[in-house]
Design a protein around this nucleic acid. Structure first.
Lengths: 144, 144
DNA sequence: TATTGTTATACTCTATAACTATA
DNA sequence: TATAGTTATAGAGTATAACAATA
């Protein structure tokens, strides 16, 4: 049995690389990258938001948010609107096109998930997920 | 039981993100990034190599190899030597310092691996690894 | 005064193209 | 001619700093 912690660790890294590459490629085909996708994702979950909030949520500078929004707005995925009470601030909102792009990405993700685990039994899936959660928790504990 | 393929897929992404961040941070503390580390890793496995070979192995341009080597050489991790038969080419070699840095990274990786899987039983580890390999194979099949 | 988002500027990483020196 | 590695230049992504408008 060569199932050592080291082997599992290496495989997790390979998985991280392959998974990241696949994601980046899928995003690039839609004119996105990770930062832009994360911004859209935040908007989807939080609703209309100021740029200041976005810069804190994405842990980047306000200047960077300006650039990300310029690109997303040019592609018709978000809109900048006047803030109702603070005339300094901007309210960023998802457009219908932005929402539909997110829906498309989600559909694609579901399809990938089904495909990847198609041959895994329910029991194996459950124990896999349990170990995954355990490792994730341990990793977060040492990192943070 | 909420162990759906989607949940597992999401968790794998979270793992990929946290794992990548942890790695990047560890490398940054040693003046490295992923490209530089990958170059050192190649040198460790292949021995003295030309820049042309490195550019193909790392799938980047020869120009980029020049830049990576300039940085690594400035930090004393690699050396450029004359190629014995082709005076156009350069033989890149790991220095002792480069080797010891790689050893340090490997030690650190082993420690992380032991720590992350400390509370996982041998049986769980084995089935985790099996599922991981299966998913990895499925992912590579669809990507490539 | 403090805050929001911008313009101006710089740094890192990567790429393409032109060039030098070999082969 | 073709190849190995360089210099010159450009583009994407992010950062800091100075600034304008507003709070």
């Amino acid at each position: 049995m060569s199932a050592t912690p080291e082997t599992a660790y290496e495989r997790m890294f390979e998985l991280a690389v392959v998974l990241s590459d696949a994601m980046d490629q899928g995003l690039a085909e839609r004119g996105l990258n990770r930062s832009r996708a994360e911004l859209l994702w935040r908007l989807h979950h939080q609703g209309p938001t100021t740029q200041r909030d976005l810069s804190e949520a994405l842990r980047c500078t306000p200047r960077n948010v300006t650039g990300l929004l310029d690109a997303l707005q040019a592609n018709g995925l978000v809109e900048r609107a006047a803030h109702p009470t603070d005339r300094r601030a901007t309210l960023v909102t998802l457009t219908g096109q932005g929402r539909s792009l997110l829906g498309e990405l989600h559909t694609r993700q579901q399809a990938s998930a089904s495909e990847l685990f198609a041959e895994i039994s329910a029991g194996d899936l459950e124990s896999f997920l349990a170990t995954l959660d355990h490792v994730l928790a341990a990793l977060r504990a040492t990192t943070a």
